[in-house]
Amino acid sequence: MKIAIHGRNFPESARPYIQSMFEELARRQTEVIISLGYREYLDNAAVAHYSEATYTVEEGVADADFIFSLGGDGTLLDAVTHVGSRQIPIIGINIGRLGFLATVAPASVRLMIDAIFNGQYTIDERTLVSVRSTQDIFGNLPFGLNDFTITRTQTSSMITVHSYLDGEFLNSYWADGLIISTPSGSTGYSLSCGGPVLLPQTESFIITPISPHNLNVRPMIVMDTCQLAFEVESRSGNFLAALDSRSYTVDTSVRISVQKEAFKARLVKLSDDNFLNTLRSKLNWGWDIRN
Rank of each mutant, 00 (worst) to 15 (best):
L198W: 02
P196C: 03
Y50D: 07
Y50T: 09
F100W: 01
G188M: 08
T30Q: 03
F138G: 08
I289R: 14
E233M: 01
R86L: 03
G185T: 02
S130E: 10
I256H: 07
A175V: 01
I206L: 13
L283I: 11
S253L: 12
L77T: 09
L145E: 12
D73K: 10
I210K: 10
F68V: 13
T187P: 14
I123A: 01
W285L: 15
D136C: 02
A175S: 15
S204P: 01
V61D: 13
V197M: 06
I90H: 03
L111G: 11
Y173P: 03
I210M: 14
Y55V: 08
G60N: 04
A107V: 12
S234A: 15
L141E: 12
V222I: 15
T30R: 05
E261S: 14
I93N: 06
K260Y: 05
F205N: 04
D136W: 00
E23T: 07
E58G: 11
N140C: 13
N214M: 15
V254E: 12
V129M: 00
F66G: 05
A102R: 04
G84I: 00
L199D: 14
R15I: 09
G7L: 09
L141M: 10
V232C: 10
E24T: 11
A229W: 01
S181I: 09
F138Y: 06
L240Y: 03
L215N: 10
I113C: 10
H213G: 09
A4E: 07
Y164S: 07
V254F: 05
A4L: 08
V47D: 08
E125A: 03
W285D: 08
D272K: 02
G119M: 00
E231I: 01
F68D: 03
E203N: 07
G99L: 05
K282C: 14
P16H: 02
